[in-house]
Amino acid sequence: MHGPRRRPAYGVPVTDLRFEGRIVGVGTTSGTRLVVGMWARSPLGSFADVMVETGEGRRILLAPSREVADFIAGTYTFDEVRVLPVSWRKVDGGIAVTVGSTDSALGDDTLRLRLDIGPVSGLGMLLRLVPKAFATRPGWLGLINPVARLIVPGSATAGTAGGGRREYYGVTLARHITGLTAAFEGRDLGSLERLWPPVRFGFGSAPAAPTLVDVTTTIR
Rank of each mutant, 00 (worst) to 15 (best):
T98E: 14
D103S: 11
L111H: 04
L127H: 03
V91P: 01
D103M: 08
V99W: 10
I117V: 15
L126T: 11
A105S: 10
D109K: 02
T102R: 15
S104F: 08
L113H: 02
S101V: 08
I95H: 07
G122V: 13
D92G: 11
R114H: 04
T98M: 15
L106E: 15
A105T: 12
D103T: 11
L127V: 06
G93D: 05
P119L: 12
S104Q: 14
I117W: 10
S101C: 05
S121A: 04
G118H: 01
D108W: 09
G94A: 14
T110A: 13
I95P: 00
P119K: 03
G94E: 09
P119C: 00
L113T: 03
G107R: 10
D116H: 07
V97Y: 08
D108V: 15
V120Q: 14
A96E: 15
L113Q: 03
L111W: 06
P119E: 09
D103W: 00
I117A: 01
D109C: 05
M125E: 06
G93M: 07
G107W: 10
R114A: 10
L126M: 14
R114S: 08
G122W: 07
D108Y: 09
D92K: 13
S104A: 12
D108I: 15
G107Q: 12
D103K: 12
S104H: 14
R114V: 14
L115T: 06
T98C: 12
R112N: 07
T98H: 14
G107E: 13
R114K: 07
V91G: 02
L106R: 14
L123S: 01
V99D: 01
T102Q: 12
L106I: 11
G124R: 04
L113C: 10
G94P: 01
L126G: 15
V120G: 12
L126P: 00
G100F: 09
R112V: 05
T102F: 06
T110H: 04
A105G: 09
D108K: 09
G107K: 10
D103Y: 01
D92W: 08
L115I: 07
T98W: 11
D92P: 03
G93N: 06
D108G: 10
L111Q: 03
